[in-house]
């Protein structure tokens, strides 16, 4: 059984016009369709990478899985029960077991809390253990993420470097002993030489304690390094999903091909071909039906503008793309 299963998960945001526009001028509301009919499952001990550009809905998806944002439509199934209808005990268990690591280590820590209190906040709120045990667990967790407890427990966030803050963020997620970590661009604010260390830490902890993860990033090189499976999103729709090596080495969808082709390579001899893509990314405000990438796609035909091909996620190992036109695409390898 999958740990988390998203079933037709959809989130729309309404943009309501101002009072005058609404009542006097009769302007209608518009809808931002941030996430549209997402189907995906994450198994035990699996790291699912989600890639995409700004506005593709990757952060909205994270918020919904973590229970921080209710879906407009569709279901989040946690260990077999639908969170929307599940009883309080299941929801409480979900809240403890699914933890989030935030993007910005500078803004996600309470500046008035000392490191020990930041990490202890979750267990105290849920009264997981008695005070003494919470203290012990916080100390061993800090040591586990490479922060010497004797040196760091009494410090405030402003006394820490970016890498140390991110470690505190990881410790406060892991101290809850979650079965799933949702990491929303956890490295994007850190310097290159420190990133690899945090990635190592993440993988080591995953080996030791075993947890699943949804790892969101715009950086495909990092996702290629950390994820088991990769899902590529564009304006709220899933474009392609599959084992990470297959998706990156032989992408199927025209968008995935363009995206992977656009990633700069740290080798001055490499000359990349020009990605086959036109125009700019738009916003998913009142989008037409069909594939949202179609307006920029060199291979699109009428069927693409009319209907969107949803991914079939019954077989999680399958590499597949949500594209009507796969049969006309040229073969390209990297």
């Amino acid at each position: 059984m999958a740990l988390i299963e998203l079933n037709q998960l959809t989130r729309h945001f309404e943009i309501r016009p101002g009072l005058v526009d609404r009542t006097v001028r009769g302007k209608p509301s518009r809808l931002i369709k941030a996430v549209e009919s997402l189907n995906i499952a994450v198994g035990e001990n699996e790291i699912l990478g989600i890639a995409g550009e700004s506005g593709c809905g990757k952060s909205t998806t994270c918020m919904m899985i973590a229970g921080l944002l209710p879906p407009t439509r569709g279901q989040i199934i946690y260990r077999g029960s639908d969170l929307a209808t599940a009883d309080a005990a299941v929801r409480k268990e979900h809240r403890r077991n699914v933890q989030m690591i935030f993007q910005d280590p500078y803004e996600s820590l309470n500046p008035r809390f000392r490191v020990a209190d930041i990490v202890a906040e979750g267990p105290r709120a849920l009264r997981l253990w008695d005070q003494k045990e919470i203290g012990d667990r916080v100390e061993s967790m800090l040591a586990g993420v490479g922060l010497n407890p004797g040196k760091y427990t009494e410090r405030f966030p402003h006394e820490l470097s970016g890498g140390e803050r991110q470690r505190v963020g990881i410790a406060s997620a892991l101290v809850m002993q979650p079965v799933m970590i949702i990491a929303d661009e956890p490295l994007s604010m850190l310097d290159v030489s420190i990133r690899a260390g945090i990635l190592d830490l993440f993988r080591e902890l995953q080996d030791q304690r075993g947890f699943s993860s949804v790892y969101v990033s715009h950086d495909l090189a990092i996702l290629g390094n950390v994820a088991d499976r990769l899902m590529v999103m564009y304006l709220g729709q899933a474009m392609e999903v599959g084992p990470v090596e297959q998706v990156i080495r032989s992408p199927k969808h025209p968008y995935t091909r363009a995206l992977i082709g656009a990633v700069a390579v740290p080798d001055p001899r490499v000359k990349r071909p020009v990605p086959k893509i036109s125009g700019d990314i738009s916003r998913p405000i009142d989008p037409p039906p069909g594939c949202r990438f179609a307006p920029r796609c060199p291979y699109a035909d009428d069927s693409c503008h009319d209907t969107f091909l949803e991914l079939d996620t019954s077989d999680p190992t399958r590499h597949q793309a949500a594209c009507h036109r796969l049969h006309v695409l040229p073969d390209e390898g990297l």
Partner: peptide, 17 residues
């Protein structure tokens, strides 16, 4: 720095901080 920087052309190569 070269060790620490991931390349999309070299999946699975170990990153070292």
């Amino acid at each position: 720095l070269k060790n620490a920087f991931p390349s999309i052309r070299e999946l699975g190569s170990e990153l070292i901080s």
